[in-house]
Deep mutational scan, measured.
Amino acid sequence: NRHQFAPGTFSGVLQCLVCDKTLLGKESLQCSNCNANVHKGCKDAAPACT
């Protein structure tokens, strides 16, 4: 399954699913299917969408 990433819209601090570093809103993407949160630069390394 493929992620459907869109710019993240969340408040607070989240961790990137891929690199475990802190996500800030402006550099984040969120999958509309599984709600995975990743950095824009990490999206290609994200595991399959669940």
Rank of each mutant, 00 (worst) to 15 (best):
T22R: 10
H39Q: 02
G12C: 03
P47C: 08
L14D: 12
S32C: 11
P7M: 12
G12S: 05
K40R: 10
L29Y: 07
T9M: 07
G41C: 10
Q4L: 08
V18L: 04
L29M: 10
C16I: 00
A48I: 13
G12M: 07
P47R: 07
K43T: 11
G25M: 12
H3R: 01
K43N: 09
S32W: 04
H3D: 10
V13R: 14
C19Q: 00
L23R: 01
R2A: 01
N35V: 05
H3S: 05
K26V: 12
L29C: 00
N33E: 11
L17V: 07
D44G: 12
T22F: 04
F5H: 01
G12R: 02
C19M: 00
C19W: 00
N1V: 05
G8M: 06
T9K: 07
N35Y: 04
A36F: 06
C34S: 01
T50M: 05
Q30G: 12
K43R: 10
P7K: 04
L14M: 12
A36W: 07
G8P: 14
L23D: 10
A6T: 10
C49G: 04
A46Y: 04
K40S: 15
C42E: 07
K43A: 10
C16P: 02
N35E: 14
G41S: 11
V18I: 09
Q15T: 09
T9H: 06
T9V: 07
Q30N: 11
K21S: 08
H3W: 00
T22K: 07
D44H: 13
T50G: 06
K43D: 14
C42W: 00
P7A: 09
C49Q: 01
R2H: 09
P7T: 10
N1S: 10
C42D: 03
T50I: 11
N1A: 05
H39E: 03
T50W: 15
A48Q: 08
G41M: 13
A46K: 08
G25A: 13
K43W: 09
P7L: 06
A46C: 07
E27P: 00
H39P: 00
R2Y: 15
L29Q: 04
H39L: 01
Q30I: 04
H3F: 01
S32A: 12
V13A: 09
Q15I: 09
N1F: 12
Q15D: 12
N1W: 05
T9Y: 02
D20T: 12
C42N: 01
P7V: 05
C16L: 00
C42S: 02
N35K: 15
T9C: 09
C16S: 01
L29D: 11
G8N: 06
Q30K: 07
T9E: 13
K40I: 12
L14Q: 07
A48N: 12
K21P: 00
S32H: 08
C31P: 01
H39C: 12
Q4A: 00
V18M: 06
Q4G: 05
R2K: 15
G12E: 13
F10G: 15
R2V: 02
H3P: 01
K40V: 13
R2S: 09
E27F: 03
A48Y: 09
H3Y: 01
C16H: 01
Q4F: 14
C49M: 03
Q30A: 10
C34E: 01
A45R: 10
A45E: 15
C31H: 01
N35T: 11
K43Q: 09
S11T: 13
G41Y: 06
A48L: 08
T22Q: 15
G41D: 13
L29K: 03
N35M: 06
S28H: 12
L29A: 09
C31N: 02
Q30L: 03
L14R: 08
Q4M: 09
K40A: 15
G8T: 06
Q15Y: 08
F10P: 09
T50A: 11
L14W: 03
N37T: 14
S32N: 12
E27R: 00
C31I: 00
D20K: 13
L17Y: 12
A45M: 09
G25I: 06
C42M: 03
N33W: 07
C19N: 00
N35S: 11
F10Q: 14
C16A: 00
F10L: 10
H39T: 02
V13T: 15
A48T: 09
A45D: 14
S28N: 08
V13S: 15
L29V: 10
V18C: 08
A46R: 09
A6E: 15
H39V: 01
A45V: 12
K43L: 10
S32G: 11
N33T: 09
A48F: 15
K26D: 15
Q15C: 06
V18S: 05
K43G: 11
N1I: 13
F10H: 13
C49N: 04
A6M: 14
E27C: 02
L23G: 13
N37R: 08
N1L: 03
K40F: 14
K21H: 06
K26L: 12
N35I: 02
G41K: 05
L24G: 13
N37F: 08
A46F: 08
H3T: 04
L17E: 04
L14H: 12
V13H: 10
G12I: 03
S11Q: 14
Q4Y: 12
V38G: 01
G12T: 04
N37M: 14
H3M: 03
K40E: 15
L29W: 02
N33R: 09
L24D: 15
N33D: 12
T50F: 15
A48H: 05
A6I: 15
